[in-house]
Amino acid sequence: MFDFNSMGIVFALAGAALASALAGIGSAIGVGKAGQAAAGVVTEDPSKFSKALIMQLLPGTQGIYGLLIAFITLNRIGILGGAAVELSPAKGLLYLAACMPIAIVGLLSAISQGKTAAAGIMMIAKKPDQMSKGMIFAAMVETYAILALLISILAIFGIAGLNV
């Protein structure tokens, strides 16, 4: 029979899953867009492969941030060790809410960063000496993923001390 009081662990696990899934999807799309631009440039000028590859990797970080939050959450709720802790529904929802910043910001920022990286790769095609500027433009988008990561980490570690 359905028991709402046992749903805490489900909510927490859903948070971990969303953090890794959404941020991962965002990174996959972002790296894909940058990869298309890289392939286009390398088709015409194979010597730009390494520069294009570095730019292509930039939108991949959000997926790593999502994975990190998922790991921390799984560790906190005991699923990684195989001994799940008892979680109240409120605490489970708190973990779910704590995972949301990196899940949502990771998804959207990775897609935006992919577009910026693609534009940077196109810039390299015409002006290879301006690569660092292209990287800075793409890195600016990263700022918001890092802020979201920070909030998710602070929230997850803060939840443990709450008595709910």
């Binding site: 867009k33 392939a39 286009g40 015409e44 730009k48 790769i121 196109m122 095609a125 015409k126």
Partner: peptide, 16 residues
């Protein structure tokens, strides 16, 4: 439609 691959090729080709 997105033409990222094609536009990147155009950008590289424009240098010629």
């Amino acid at each position: 439609n997105e033409y990222i691959y094609s536009v990147a090729r155009v950008r590289a080709k424009e240098t010629s």
